[in-house]
Amino acid sequence: MKTKLTLTIKKEVVEMAKRKASGQGISLSKMIENIFEKEEPLVQTSESELAAKRLLKRLEEMEPTKAPKESDKVALTQYLKEKYG
Rank of each mutant, 00 (worst) to 15 (best):
I26S: 00
N34V: 02
K4G: 03
S27W: 01
V74G: 00
K18Y: 03
Q78P: 01
A67H: 07
Q24A: 14
T77Q: 14
I35K: 12
E70F: 07
K83L: 04
A17S: 14
L7A: 12
Q44P: 06
E47W: 04
K30L: 03
L76N: 04
A67F: 07
E61A: 10
E47S: 15
Q44K: 09
S22V: 12
S48L: 11
T65A: 13
G85R: 08
E70T: 05
L56G: 07
K81G: 02
K20I: 11
M31Q: 09
R54N: 10
R19S: 14
A17D: 05
K20L: 13
V74D: 01
V43D: 05
K2H: 10
V43T: 09
A51N: 08
S29A: 15
D72L: 13
K20P: 00
V43A: 13
E61W: 01
P41D: 03
Q78A: 11
S48H: 10
T65C: 05
S46E: 03
P64W: 01
T65V: 13
E60G: 14
I26V: 15
E49K: 07
P41M: 05
S27P: 02
K83S: 00
K2R: 09
M62H: 05
S71P: 05
E70N: 07
L7M: 12
M1T: 07
M62T: 04
K69H: 09
K11I: 11
E60I: 08
G25E: 10
M16D: 10
I26M: 15
E15M: 10
D72V: 04
A21E: 00
K73M: 09
S27F: 00
Q24G: 07
F36E: 00
L7D: 08
V74M: 02
Y79Q: 04
Y79D: 00
D72A: 08
Q24C: 12
E40F: 08
L5F: 09
P41Q: 04
L5I: 08
L76G: 00
Y79K: 06
S29R: 03
Q78I: 00
K73R: 14
Q78E: 15
L59F: 05
M31N: 00
R58Q: 12
K11C: 13
M31Y: 04
E15C: 06
R58N: 09
